[in-house]
C-alpha cells in the first residue's frame, strides 16, 4: 500500500487512558459497584491485545501460511467452547459447535483462498479467519440455544412424533428448521443494512488505513458474503451434530 497509514503512537495510547478515567468517575459517582470489573476489563483488553499483536507479528514474520491456518484452528477450538456453552444440556454441545465452526469456517476460508479472492498470505488469512469464525460462533451458539430450548419445551411434541413411528430426524425436523432460522436471522439482517446502519470492521479498518472508500467496500462485500456462507454451514453442521447426540439408536431422546 502506498498510502501513509496513521495510527496512534504509544504515548497516544497512554493518553487514551484519560478516557478510562472518565468512565471510572461516572461509575464511582453513580455507586455502580463495578469499578473493579471495569478496571479488570481495561487491563485485560490491553494485555490481550498486546499479546495478540505480538503473536500475530510472530506468525506473519516466521510461521507464514501454515502458522496462519494453525492460528485459525486455535480460534475454532476457542469459539467452539464459547458457542457450545450456549447449548449446555445438549449432550456434546461443544463438540457439535467445534465441528460446525471447523466445517463452516474451513470451507469458506479455503474457497476464498482457492478462488484467489483473497491472497494466500498470513497477514490476510488471519484477520479474515477471525471475522468468519467470530460470525459463525454467534450463529452456532444461537442454533444450539434453540436446540436446547426445543428439548426442554418441545419434548411432548417430539415424543408424540416418535410414537407415530417417525425417525429421530423427522421428529426433530421442525426444531432443526427453527434453530437454523434463528441462527441465520442476525447475519441476514446485518447483511441487509450493511453500510446504512453499520460501517463494518473490515471497511472501517481500510478507510482508517487510508484506502479509498470504493476500494474498501469491495473487501466488505466479500466479507459479508463469506460470513453468510460460513454462518449457514456452521449452524447447519452444528445442529446436525447436536441432533445426532440428542437421540439414541432406537430413535428416542437420550436425556
Amino acid at each position: 500500500m502506498s498510502h501513509e497509514v496513521h495510527v496512534p503512537s504509544w504515548p497516544g495510547v497512554v493518553a487514551s487512558l484519560a478516557l478510562v478515567a472518565i468512565a471510572l468517575a461516572i461509575v464511582a459517582r453513580a455507586r455502580l459497584r463495578i469499578t473493579r470489573e471495569l478496571l479488570v476489563a481495561v487491563v485485560r483488553a490491553g494485555v490481550q491485545l498486546i499479546a495478540v499483536g505480538a503473536l500475530l507479528l510472530a506468525i506473519f514474520r516466521y510461521a507464514g501460511l501454515p502458522g496462519a491456518f494453525a492460528w485459525a484452528a486455535v480460534m475454532v477450538v476457542i469459539a467452539g467452547q464459547v458457542a457450545g456453552r450456549r447449548g449446555s444440556g445438549v449432550p456434546r454441545s461443544r463438540v457439535a459447535a467445534t465441528a460446525g465452526l471447523a466445517t463452516g469456517g474451513g470451507a469458506t476460508l479455503l474457497a476464498l483462498v482457492v478462488l484467489d479472492v483473497i491472497p494466500a498470505q498470513a497477514r490476510v488469512v488471519v484477520p479474515v479467519a477471525g471475522m468468519i469464525i467470530g460470525g459463525s460462533m454467534q450463529a452456532a451458539g444461537l442454533a444450539l440455544r434453540r436446540v436446547r430450548d426445543a428439548v426442554t419445551s418441545g419434548r411432548p411434541a417430539i415424543e408424540a412424533r416418535l410414537s407415530l413411528g417417525l425417525t429421530a430426524r423427522e421428529a426433530f425436523a421442525p426444531h432443526t428448521r427453527d434453530a437454523l432460522h434463528t441462527a441465520l436471522l442476525p447475519v441476514i439482517d446485518s447483511t441487509k443494512v450493511v453500510g446504512l446502519i453499520t460501517l463494518p470492521g473490515a471497511m472501517t479498518g481500510l478507510i482508517l488505513g487510508g484506502v479509498e472508500p470504493l476500494t474498501a467496500i469491495r473487501y466488505q462485500i466479500v466479507v459479508m458474503y463469506m460470513m453468510l456462507a460460513a454462518a449457514a454451514v456452521s449452524a447447519y453442521v452444528t445442529t446436525r451434530f447436536a441432533e445426532a447426540a440428542l437421540f439414541d439408536d432406537a430413535h428416542r431422546l437420550r436425556t
Binding site: 410414537s163 407415530l164 413411528g165 425417525t167 432406537a250 430413535h251
Partner: peptide, 13 residues
C-alpha cells in the same frame, strides 16, 4: 425394527 414396532403399537400420551 423400532419404527415399525411404533406403528404397530400406538401410544396416546
Amino acid at each position: 425394527d423400532v419404527l415399525a414396532l411404533r406403528r404397530r403399537v400406538g401410544l396416546v400420551a
